[in-house]
Protein backbone atom coordinates (compact mmCIF):
# COMPACT_ATOMS: atom_id res chain seq x y z
CA UNK A 1 0.00 0.00 0.00
CA UNK A 2 1.19 3.49 -0.74
CA UNK A 3 1.46 6.12 1.97
CA UNK A 4 -1.54 7.86 0.49
CA UNK A 5 -3.64 4.69 0.69
CA UNK A 6 -2.51 4.11 4.28
CA UNK A 7 -3.48 7.67 5.12
CA UNK A 8 -6.94 7.12 3.64
CA UNK A 9 -7.40 3.91 5.67
CA UNK A 10 -6.22 5.77 8.79
CA UNK A 11 -8.76 8.52 8.20
CA UNK A 12 -11.56 6.03 7.55
CA UNK A 13 -10.71 4.20 10.80
CA UNK A 14 -10.65 7.49 12.71
CA UNK A 15 -13.92 8.54 11.12
CA UNK A 16 -15.59 5.24 12.07
CA UNK A 17 -14.52 5.32 15.73
CA UNK A 18 -15.19 9.05 16.06
CA UNK A 19 -18.65 8.58 14.54
CA UNK A 20 -19.54 5.92 17.11
CA UNK A 21 -18.24 8.05 19.97
CA UNK A 22 -19.96 11.20 18.71
CA UNK A 23 -23.28 9.40 18.47
CA UNK A 24 -22.83 7.79 21.90
CA UNK A 25 -21.81 11.04 23.56
CA UNK A 26 -24.63 13.17 22.13
CA UNK A 27 -27.26 10.72 23.34
CA UNK A 28 -25.80 10.81 26.85
CA UNK A 29 -25.35 14.59 26.87
CA UNK A 30 -28.99 14.96 25.84
CA UNK A 31 -30.27 12.72 28.63
CA UNK A 32 -27.60 12.44 31.38
CA UNK A 33 -30.04 11.09 33.95
CA UNK A 34 -30.47 7.94 31.91
CA UNK A 35 -26.72 7.51 31.75
CA UNK A 36 -26.48 8.08 35.51
CA UNK A 37 -28.92 5.22 35.92
CA UNK A 38 -26.80 2.99 33.71
CA UNK A 39 -23.68 3.88 35.70
CA UNK A 40 -25.48 3.04 38.96
CA UNK A 41 -26.64 -0.29 37.56
CA UNK A 42 -23.05 -1.43 37.11
CA UNK A 43 -22.60 -1.28 40.92
CA UNK A 44 -18.93 -0.40 40.63
CA UNK A 45 -18.92 3.20 41.80
CA UNK A 46 -20.69 4.44 44.94
CA UNK A 47 -24.15 5.74 43.95
CA UNK A 48 -23.20 9.27 44.96
CA UNK A 49 -20.68 9.54 42.09
CA UNK A 50 -23.00 8.37 39.31
CA UNK A 51 -24.13 11.91 38.49
CA UNK A 52 -20.56 13.18 38.34
CA UNK A 53 -19.66 10.49 35.80
CA UNK A 54 -22.85 11.14 33.82
CA UNK A 55 -22.10 14.87 33.61
CA UNK A 56 -18.43 14.59 32.63
CA UNK A 57 -17.82 11.32 30.76
CA UNK A 58 -20.02 12.04 27.69
CA UNK A 59 -18.06 15.28 27.13
CA UNK A 60 -14.80 13.35 27.30
CA UNK A 61 -16.21 11.05 24.62
CA UNK A 62 -17.22 14.01 22.48
CA UNK A 63 -13.87 15.79 22.86
CA UNK A 64 -11.89 12.61 22.19
CA UNK A 65 -13.95 11.88 19.08
CA UNK A 66 -13.30 15.37 17.69
CA UNK A 67 -9.59 15.07 18.55
CA UNK A 68 -9.42 11.73 16.74
CA UNK A 69 -10.74 13.34 13.56
CA UNK A 70 -7.98 15.96 13.52
CA UNK A 71 -4.60 14.49 12.47
CA UNK A 72 -2.66 16.90 14.73
CA UNK A 73 -4.50 15.69 17.84
CA UNK A 74 -5.28 12.15 16.72
CA UNK A 75 -2.85 10.49 19.12
CA UNK A 76 -4.27 12.34 22.10
CA UNK A 77 -7.79 11.43 21.02
CA UNK A 78 -6.75 7.81 20.51
CA UNK A 79 -5.22 7.64 23.99
CA UNK A 80 -8.36 8.97 25.63
CA UNK A 81 -10.66 6.74 23.57
CA UNK A 82 -8.49 3.69 24.22
CA UNK A 83 -8.50 4.44 27.94
CA UNK A 84 -12.26 4.69 27.95
CA UNK A 85 -12.68 1.51 25.90
CA UNK A 86 -10.44 -0.44 28.27
CA UNK A 87 -12.48 0.96 31.17
CA UNK A 88 -15.76 -0.04 29.47
CA UNK A 89 -14.48 -3.55 28.77
CA UNK A 90 -13.40 -3.91 32.40
CA UNK A 91 -16.72 -2.60 33.71
CA UNK A 92 -18.83 -4.86 31.50
CA UNK A 93 -16.65 -7.88 32.25
CA UNK A 94 -16.92 -7.26 35.98
CA UNK A 95 -20.64 -6.40 36.16
CA UNK A 96 -22.16 -8.61 33.48
CA UNK A 97 -19.79 -11.57 33.29
CA UNK A 98 -18.28 -11.80 36.76
CA UNK A 99 -21.23 -10.59 38.85
CA UNK A 100 -23.87 -11.82 36.42
CA UNK A 101 -25.94 -8.63 36.42
CA UNK A 102 -28.53 -8.33 33.65
CA UNK A 103 -28.09 -4.67 32.84
CA UNK A 104 -28.08 -2.30 29.90
CA UNK A 105 -24.56 -1.45 28.76
CA UNK A 106 -25.42 2.26 28.65
CA UNK A 107 -23.28 2.51 25.54
CA UNK A 108 -25.61 4.76 23.60
CA UNK A 109 -27.54 6.68 26.23
CA UNK A 110 -31.26 6.17 26.05
CA UNK A 111 -30.95 3.10 23.85
CA UNK A 112 -31.46 0.78 26.77
CA UNK A 113 -31.98 -2.30 24.67
CA UNK A 114 -28.30 -3.28 24.39
CA UNK A 115 -27.53 -5.68 27.20
CA UNK A 116 -24.06 -5.63 28.69
CA UNK A 117 -22.18 -8.82 27.86
CA UNK A 118 -19.87 -10.48 25.37
CA UNK A 119 -21.41 -8.54 22.48
CA UNK A 120 -20.51 -5.17 24.02
CA UNK A 121 -17.06 -6.41 24.96
CA UNK A 122 -16.58 -7.54 21.36
CA UNK A 123 -17.71 -4.16 20.02
CA UNK A 124 -15.37 -2.31 22.39
CA UNK A 125 -12.45 -4.58 21.50
CA UNK A 126 -13.15 -4.02 17.79
CA UNK A 127 -13.22 -0.24 18.32
CA UNK A 128 -9.94 -0.52 20.23
CA UNK A 129 -8.30 -2.25 17.25
CA UNK A 130 -9.68 0.30 14.79
CA UNK A 131 -8.50 3.15 17.02
CA UNK A 132 -5.04 1.61 17.05
CA UNK A 133 -5.08 1.34 13.25
CA UNK A 134 -6.17 4.94 12.86
CA UNK A 135 -2.95 6.01 14.61
CA UNK A 136 -0.66 3.26 13.37
CA UNK A 137 -1.46 3.89 9.71
CA UNK A 138 -1.02 7.64 9.89
CA UNK A 139 1.96 8.47 7.67
CA UNK A 140 3.56 10.64 10.34
CA UNK A 141 3.26 7.87 12.89
CA UNK A 142 4.97 5.27 10.72
CA UNK A 143 7.92 7.59 10.14
CA UNK A 144 8.57 8.37 13.77
CA UNK A 145 10.54 6.48 16.39
CA UNK A 146 8.58 3.70 18.12
CA UNK A 147 8.69 5.63 21.42
CA UNK A 148 6.84 8.51 19.82
CA UNK A 149 4.04 6.36 18.48
CA UNK A 150 0.88 5.08 20.06
CA UNK A 151 1.97 2.50 22.66
CA UNK A 152 0.47 -0.56 21.01
CA UNK A 153 2.11 0.45 17.73
CA UNK A 154 5.43 0.83 19.52
CA UNK A 155 5.02 -2.63 21.01
CA UNK A 156 4.29 -4.21 17.64
CA UNK A 157 7.25 -2.46 16.06
CA UNK A 158 9.48 -3.62 18.89
CA UNK A 159 8.33 -7.20 18.32
Amino acid sequence: MTKQQLAIVSHVCALGVAGVFLYASLEKIWEPRQFAMDVTNFRILPDAYANLVAIILPWWELAAAIALLIPATRRAGAWVISGMLVMFIGAVAYAALYKGLHISCGCFGKDGSTAAGWKTIGLDAFLLVVTFLSVRLMPEASERQPVETFPAAAASQGA
Binding site: I29, P32, I55, I56, W59, W60, A63, V80
Partner: peptide, 30 residues
Amino acid sequence: QIITLLVIASALGAATNSIRPTSMPWMRAE
Protein backbone atom coordinates in the same frame (compact mmCIF):
# COMPACT_ATOMS: atom_id res chain seq x y z
CA GLN B 1 -3.04 17.61 24.48
CA ILE B 2 -4.70 14.86 26.54
CA ILE B 3 -4.78 16.99 29.69
CA THR B 4 -6.08 20.01 27.76
CA LEU B 5 -8.71 17.86 26.10
CA LEU B 6 -9.98 16.44 29.39
CA VAL B 7 -9.96 19.79 31.20
CA ILE B 8 -11.87 21.56 28.41
CA ALA B 9 -14.35 18.70 28.11
CA SER B 10 -14.92 18.62 31.88
CA ALA B 11 -15.46 22.37 31.93
CA LEU B 12 -17.96 22.11 29.09
CA GLY B 13 -19.78 19.33 30.91
CA ALA B 14 -19.96 21.40 34.10
CA ALA B 15 -21.06 24.53 32.23
CA THR B 16 -23.73 22.70 30.25
CA ASN B 17 -25.07 21.08 33.39
CA SER B 18 -25.26 24.38 35.22
CA ILE B 19 -27.17 26.20 32.46
CA ARG B 20 -29.47 23.33 31.56
CA PRO B 21 -33.00 23.94 32.86
CA THR B 22 -33.03 20.46 34.35
CA SER B 23 -29.52 20.39 35.81
CA MET B 24 -28.44 17.38 37.84
CA PRO B 25 -26.79 17.67 41.25
CA TRP B 26 -23.10 16.71 41.11
CA MET B 27 -23.49 14.16 43.85
CA ARG B 28 -26.50 11.91 44.04
CA ALA B 29 -28.54 12.00 47.24
CA GLU B 30 -28.04 9.05 49.52
